[in-house]
Amino acid sequence: MSDAAITVEEARKTYRGARGSGTAALDGLDLTVARSTVHAVLGPNGAGKTTLVRVLSTLLRPDSGRVVVAGHDVVREAYQVRLRIGLLGQHAALDEELGGRQNLELFGRLHHLGARRARARADELLERFGLSGTGAKAVAKYSGGMRRRLDLAASLITEPEVLFLDEPTTGLDPRGRAEVWDAVRSLVGGGTTVLLTTQYLEEADQLADRVSMVDSGRVVADGTVDQLKTATGGDRIDVVLRDAGQLETVAGLLPAPRDAVTVDADRRLLSAPVSDRMAALTAVVQALREAGVEAEDVALRRPTLDEVFLHLTGRDERVKEAA
């Protein structure tokens, strides 16, 4: 067996619309995920994240390309793949009319655990996700966070080799998010491979060993979070002014080409990429003093994944126009 839990080569998937028109949701996507790691797929709305997860979890056939999960081809050996995966889709995949416990027992039986083990497993998972008290209640009456936790529990019935999480924390409050994060971390400790999609950069930063940035159905960048941050030109310097009227003046003083400087008028914030951290810091403080400009804050920092993403997808321009 290879070290990869997931291999995707040149995957393509086009949704056919009326009269031959089509959206290429996956446009030659390549991806490799090593065993027992967390891999984040990061991308904006419509990037193809859900399509990728549906292909990986055998719900959707790719038009072409090779997709292997846990050592089995998702098209030719779908059954073998299904034995080894767990899926938390973007939207709840539960029987809303049944209770939480009934749902978990149902899925346990369909995993052929047998009645007794299915019941025991349901209780165990309800307990673990803090749903013991509400196991009898119909899922339709659950809160969004409870439903998400039950959905996650349902995807863990058999302790899958590979777990897919499509935007697992979208719509959750900070506590719900932290709970999901903890669950993911503990799973990986147990050897599970996790592929999660997210629009929250912090989530990728928190959980993922590696990140793939996806845009228009292809991977535009791939690496560890640190590697990607370095790829965007390393560190940045942020300057917050007291007087928004001086933003333009100061933009010209920063040690970076004017068009690399971003200006956020609302927060009176200027941000520029820098190559030499300390030299840049001293130069900026000096320049501000000489120009007689009062600054509220001057700070060096690593770029956020947002900036990395915008940089790599060539969307810098749009953001600046919007600002």
């Binding site: 979890s57 055998t58 719900l59 059954y79 299904r82 034995l83 995966i85 899926l87 889709g89 939207h91 709840a92 995949a93 539960l94 029987d95 809303e96 899925f107 369909l110 995993h111 052929h112 349902a154």
Partner: peptide, 12 residues
């Protein structure tokens, strides 16, 4: 409701 998605992703 998407519950069929879960069924279809399971070895049933």
């Amino acid at each position: 409701k998407g519950v069929v998605d879960r069924f279809r992703s399971m070895p049933m």
